[in-house]
Amino acid sequence: MQATTDELRAVFLSRDIADFEIGSCGLAAPVPLAAMRLAQELHAPNLTLAMEGALNPRPRHLVDVPVDPEAHHEAEAILDLYDLFVNGERGIDFWFMAGIQIDRHGNLNLHRVGGTPERPAFRGPGIGNSSIAMTADRWYAYPGSHTPRTFVESVDFVTTTGTRCRFVVSPLAVLDFEAETHRMRLKHLMPGMTVEDVVAATGFKLLVPTELEPFPAPTDEELRVLREVVDTAGALRRAN
């Protein structure tokens, strides 16, 4: 079976994780959780998962909500929110966020779109932990959709600033940021996508380098471990 977009996203992110780092993620967890668990299985056995609720769990399948009791499987410790507060103030290595809007500098919005603060046109879910994205060495955006409505000129509410955003891994492309301006730049196209597709789906002027490296294909071993050990219930194989 060919790799799905979510599998490609998880494998790409897992390769950016180093051994002995400390990472975490919030809700809508399947892609980031897969990336971290895959890294642990393949090249980062000493990676620490400081999840919301438990330390170093090994959930039987890729749960959506890391605070659910099934997500604590084989955890080494139950954590209080106070432990996350410490991590949020002092900083860990990396974190992941999806979001409902992202702008050219990686500023992310999970709170509201349109209208006024008192009466928004759309009220988003909000966020558990914004602090970790603000103080971690880096965070990764993994938006579920890439359209002019989600990739916008400027976000309506800054839930998290984009300063420490390293990669945006969307269903269409991998994007990074130009060093001097921290403007979002195309890095890799997902298989089957063209530069025109991505530019048309982006609501601001995207930096496009003259030469694009192809999307790094997953190895057979990465896909085998992902499917047989990490994503046993096929959460990343369901959509697309």
Partner: peptide, 19 residues
């Protein structure tokens, strides 16, 4: 309820609530 202005919903996050 938020979009119709029926209730007030603070814009917040868990770490500031922890503090």
């Amino acid at each position: 309820a938020v979009e119709t202005g029926e209730i007030e919903a603070a814009y917040t996050d868990a770490m500031s609530r922890t503090a």
